[in-house]
C-alpha cells in the first residue's frame, strides 16, 4: 500500500476521476464543480438583483456537500496520505520557472510567492490572485462549465459544445503561459 503515499501516476489518477464520474452518475447527478460558484452567488443574495441567479439553490445542495468533501479530501491527502508533497515537474519546466523568478519550482506543491500567507501582503501577488479568480469565475459560467463539466462530463458524452470549450481552455492557457507570463513575471 506504499504507493498511496507517493504522488499518484496518471494511470491511477485518471481512472480515479472516471470512478468519481461513475459514482455521481449512479446517484443520479452530473459532475460539474463550477455550478457551485453560481449557487454561492444565489445564497449570498444575488438572486434579488439578477435573474440569472434566480433558482432554487436547495436543488444544488448535494453539489455543495461534494465541495465540502473536496476540502476535507485535500486535508486528508496532505496530512495523512503523503510523505513528501514536492511536485517532481520536468527539469525543463524547473529551469523555465526559475528564469521567471519561481525559485521553489521542483521543491514545493505550489509557488510560495503566490500561495504563502506572505503573498497576501504583496500587492502584485494579491492582484494576480484576484484577477485569476475573476477570469475563472466569469469564463467558466460564460462557457457553461469548467474542467469537470466540459473536459470530463461533456466530452465523455461526446458533446461538441464541450469540445469547443476545451479547445478554448487550451487557447487561453497557452496565451497566458507563453505570451503573458513573460510580461507578468
Amino acid at each position: 500500500m506504499n504507493w498511496i503515499y507517493e504522488p499518484w501516476p496518471w494511470y491511477i489518477s485518471g481512472p480515479m476521476i472516471a470512478l468519481i464520474l461513475f459514482l455521481l452518475l449512479m446517484v443520479g447527478k452530473n459532475f460539474g464543480m463550477s455550478s457551485n460558484l453560481r449557487t454561492l452567488c444565489t445564497i449570498c443574495g444575488a438572486d434579488k438583483k439578477v435573474d440569472f441567479f434566480k433558482f432554487d439553490w436547495q436543488t444544488q445542495k448535494w453539489n455543495l456537500i461534494v465541495v465540502i468533501g473536496t476540502i476535507i479530501g485535500g486535508f486528508i491527502a496532505s496530512n495523512f496520505l503523503s510523505t513528501d508533497t514536492t511536485v517532481a515537474i520536468s527539469q525543463e519546466t524547473i529551469s523555465d520557472l526559475k528564469n521567471l523568478g519561481f525559485n521553489d519550482a521542483g521543491n514545493a506543491y505550489l509557488p510560495s510567492n503566490l500561495f504563502d500567507l506572505n503573498a497576501l501582503t504583496n500587492v502584485k501577488s494579491l492582484i494576480i490572485l484576484i484577477v485569476s479568480g475573476l477570469l475563472v469565475g466569469f469564463g467558466t459560467r460564460y462557457a457553461g462549465g469548467c474542467t469537470s463539466g466540459h473536459a470530463i462530463s461533456g466530452l465523455s458524452n461526446l458533446q461538441v459544445p464541450s469540445l469547443i470549450a476545451v479547445i478554448g481552455f487550451f487557447i487561453g492557457g497557452i496565451i497566458m503561459i507563453h505570451f503573458l507570463f513573460p510580461l507578468l513575471f
Binding site: 457551485n36 509557488p111 462557457a143 481552455f169 487557447i171
Partner: peptide, 20 residues
C-alpha cells in the same frame, strides 16, 4: 464556448487551479 473557454483558460493557467 469559445470565448468563455478562452477566458477560463487564461484564469486556469494563472491561478494554476480550476474550480474543484
Amino acid at each position: 464556448y469559445m470565448i468563455g473557454g478562452i477566458i477560463f483558460g487564461l484564469g486556469w493557467a494563472l491561478a494554476g487551479a480550476c474550480p474543484g
